[in-house]
Every structure is written in C-alpha cells, then in structure tokens.
C-alpha cells in the first residue's frame, strides 16, 4: 500500500528525531567524559541551551542521571525508550531486522548503566544506531518512508547544532540535505519556515541561530 496512516507518519517522524537526538547528544557528551578527568563541565549551560530542567547535584550526577535515569523525562535513556517505542509500532513497515538494532541500542544503554566505565558500552549504542541507519536505508523499499525518517533526523540534527552552537559551519550543508530529502516525501512543510531555510547561510550571531532554529522546529507540524 502506498499511503501511510497519519499516526504511522507521525511515528516515523519521531523515530527519526529520537534516534538522531540519542546519537548526536551521545557524541557531544563523549568529550565531556574526558574533560571531567581534568576539570569541570558546564552542564547548567548545556541544560539551558536544550531548555531542560537543571536538576543535577554536580558533574558526576549530571553525567549519570542525564544519560541513564529512566525516570527523568529529559534523560537520554528516556529518549532511547521513546525511539524504541516509536520503532516497535512500525515493525511491519521498517522490518524486524531493522527494528532489532533499536532493541540492541536500548539494551546497550541498560548494560552501559551497569558498567563502571560507561563510555565503552555507550560506543556500542552509537554503533547500533549507525547500524539502524544503514539497515533502514538499505532494507526499506519505500522511498517516502526512508526519507521521512531521514528528514526528521535532519531536523533534529539541525536543531541540536543550532541550540548547542556546535558544528555551525555545517548548518548550510545540513539544510541542503534536508531540502533534498523533503522533496522525496509526502511531508507538507510550512511555507514560512521553508523560505527561511532556503535562504539560510551558516549562522554567525545568536539571532541568526534562533531564527533558523525556529524555522527548523516549525518546518513540519507533527
């Protein structure tokens, strides 16, 4: 069947956003484990940039609970569960073999939590997400489905880069990729956001970042 239900389309979109949020944020935090050996990390600034509650006692508490606390709605473990939750209801669309990589990523989060050296098992979480990306790109025949996931991942990556002020020199190129993918989907973009993104360059000021962030977040209404 060519058409997706509205709820499936929504699930595909959020699957893309959550897996990208998990992998990009883990990559970002990767360096902080190293920084903590010699000094302190500015986690309150991180929380502010992501607009999440800064409820942590210290660096160590942040690095553990922000990553692993399944009862914390902002944690990466919650993001991982949401990623799997969206994937589970799409089994007949993405396939069991592809879905298995999301199961493995969540299992990887659980085993990393139990490790006294979590950075090593967290590497496996990123590996499983990379495997998931390769698997869905290769195994899903439906171009619309593939590109909805990719578009959502693109929006999430752009959003994180702009919020965190990270890889700002890649913003224009990420927007270019997003536009190409969007044209291969049934997604209906917001005309206003589209205009802002199409005329964008790599941002240099906080105002430019904010304008692009708003456009990316409002590009699709889900």
């Amino acid at each position: 069947m060519d058409s997706l239900s509205v709820s499936k389309l929504n699930r595909l979109y959020w699957l893309g956003r959550y897996y990208e949020r998990l992998s990009t944020t883990l990559s970002y935090l990767w360096d902080w484990y190293d920084v903590m050996i010699d000094g302190e990390i500015d986690y309150p600034d991180f929380c502010q940039k992501l607009s999440i509650d800064c409820c942590y006692k210290d660096d160590k508490d942040f690095m553990h609970n922000y990553v692993f606390d399944k009862n914390n709605p902002d944690s990466l473990r919650t993001v991982a569960d949401a990623m799997l939750g969206n994937g589970m209801v799409l089994r007949e669309i993405i396939g069991s073999r592809t879905l298995a990589y999301l199961e493995l990523a969540v299992m990887g989060m659980k085993s990393a939590e139990e490790s006294d050296s979590p950075t090593l098992p967290l590497q496996r979480v990123i590996d499983f997400i990379m495997a998931f990306r390769g698997s869905y790109d290769d195994m899903i025949d439906d171009e619309n489905v593939r590109n909805i996931i990719k578009c959502a991942a693109g929006v999430e990556r752009l959003s994180l880069y702009l919020r965190l002020g990270w890889h700002l020199d890649s913003v224009k190129s990420e927007i270019g990729k997003l536009m190409k993918r969007m044209n291969r989907t049934s997604l209906q973009p917001s005309h206003t956001s589209l205009q802002v993104l199409l005329s964008a360059k790599n941002p240099e000021t906080p105002e430019e970042r904010k304008k692009l962030l708003d456009a990316a977040e409002n590009l699709f209404v889900m």
Binding site: M1, D2, S3, S5, V6, S7, L9, V89, S186
Partner: peptide
C-alpha cells in the same frame, strides 16, 4: 498486512476505511 489501531480506522457508509495522509483506503 497493515497494523492499525482504532484511530487509524473509521467506518463510513457501512464500510471500514484505513485513514491515511491521502485518501482513505
């Protein structure tokens, strides 16, 4: 088969349809 929940399905004129982002099926 298509996996559907209740909000994906509706009945009109005594016919069951799957609600899609385009035309119902």
């Amino acid at each position: 088969a298509v996996l559907a929940e209740s909000n994906d399905l509706f009945v009109e004129n005594q016919t069951l349809y799957y609600r899609t982002s385009r035309d119902p099926v």
